[in-house]
Structures are given as C-alpha cells and as structure tokens.
Simulated assay, not measured.
Amino acid sequence: MNDKTTPPSNPAETVASAAAGLTRRRLVRAGLTAAPVMAALQSNTVLAGGSKGFGHGCIRPSTFSSLKAANWTISQGRDIKGNFVCRPYSHWKNNFPHKFKNVYFLSEVTKCNRDPRPYDNRKTYKKLKMRDVFELRDDDTDARLARYVLAAFLSADAAGAGSDNVWLTKRQCHEIWNGRGNWKPFAGATWDLNQTMNYFEVIFARG
C-alpha cells in the first residue's frame, strides 16, 4: 500500500482494518506493536494488500525476520515481494484439491512423519487424510501447526515446482512439521516452535 495519509488516532484499529484480520491478540503473540506494523503497512505491501486476491500479503521467513529486527521500518527504495501464492487453511478447506483426496497427511507425498499421539488410537495422526487436518476440532499447538503446514504445502503445490512465487517450499513444510516448529528457515537462523507459530499467526491472520 502507498497510503500517505495521516493515520487515525487509534493505530490498533487501523492495523486491524489494514491487515484484514490481524487482531491485537495476534500482534501481541507475534511480539509486534501497532505503530511499527502500521508504518510497514503504509510503506509497502507487507502483511496486507493481498496475494492472488485473497486479501492478505505474504513474506518469506528471511524478510519477516529482517523487518522485525528493523522494528518494521522499510529502507527507502526496498522492494518487498508480496505476490506469493499464499492461501490460508480456510481457503483450502473449501477448495481442497481433488488430486489429494485420498492422500494421508503422514505420507510419502507430504513427507510428514511425526505423529503427535502415536499411542492414542483415537487421536493418532496416522489415520488423518490431508483433508481431515482442516476438520480437526482440537485447538492445541499440534492441530494448529498441522493446519498451517498443510495450507503452506498446498500453496506451494499450487504455485508449481521451481516457482518464484513459493513463500515456503514443500521441503520446508515437512521440516517444520517433523521438527515440531524447530527448523532452519534460512542460512544462519534457527527458529523454535514459538517463533514459527508467531510467523504463521501473522501470515495466516485471516485463516
């Protein structure tokens, strides 16, 4: 966005509107404050403006990390890529790809193999097909992480192999799941579960 108008006196309300669902609770979870995010939103298409018309932007982990470290200020002339295929799990739940209809979440297709509940026959993930993940009624960390990872996986698949519009690769998706949020998003960085969930909370704010 290139909105140069003077921001209203209630930045939190403006952020919620501009980010189309980036609520105060989610901002707090991600360790963000209203003012710097407001500045970022006004300066460029970061976390807002839409990706493929889905009403919210998307940035790669390296960009997310550098912007957060810079208190969400964007250097003059810097171009922030925001045209990734980035669709939340609410989209995939209603537009699930037919080719994955009978594929299990823990499978060679996704390369996800970690079962959070291997000894609970009622809750084991081994019985979940990919589509079932979006129907999970649980709201624990693993259920939320599964929804985020699968939405990212399907977005990567929709973008196509080798596409520059992939914000997380399929390989990164199964690394995140198998490591329960502990992974290396880019060279020289290691994220733990909390950092990973914060990232997904912001990217999939409307999901």
Rank of each mutant, 00 (worst) to 15 (best):
A151Y: 06
T190G: 01
D79K: 13
N121G: 04
I74H: 11
Y125N: 00
L193K: 13
T63F: 05
F84E: 06
K101G: 00
F96N: 04
N194V: 07
A189I: 14
A146Q: 08
Q76C: 05
N121H: 10
P185M: 01
L193W: 08
K99T: 07
A159K: 05
L168A: 09
I176H: 00
K129N: 02
L193A: 13
N194F: 05
N178D: 11
G82D: 12
A159V: 09
I74Y: 11
R137A: 12
D132Y: 04
R131K: 14
P88A: 12
L154D: 01
N94T: 11
N198H: 14
L136M: 11
V166K: 08
R122K: 15
K81M: 05
A159Q: 03
A151Q: 02
L150C: 01
W183M: 08
N83P: 02
A159N: 05
C86F: 09
G162Q: 08
T110W: 10
N102T: 09
Y199R: 03
R117P: 00
R117Y: 15
Y104E: 01
N182D: 14
S163T: 09
Q195M: 15
E135Y: 13
R122N: 14
D142I: 04
A187T: 10
P61G: 05
W183N: 04
F153V: 02
V109D: 11
W72D: 10
H98W: 11
T141N: 09
A161L: 15
V85E: 12
D139I: 12
A158E: 15
A189N: 12
Y89A: 10
R137Y: 04
Y125K: 04
K170C: 14
S66A: 14
G77R: 05
K68Q: 12
L136D: 05
G181P: 07
V202M: 02
T63D: 11
V149W: 07
W177H: 07
E201Q: 13
G160Y: 09
S107A: 01
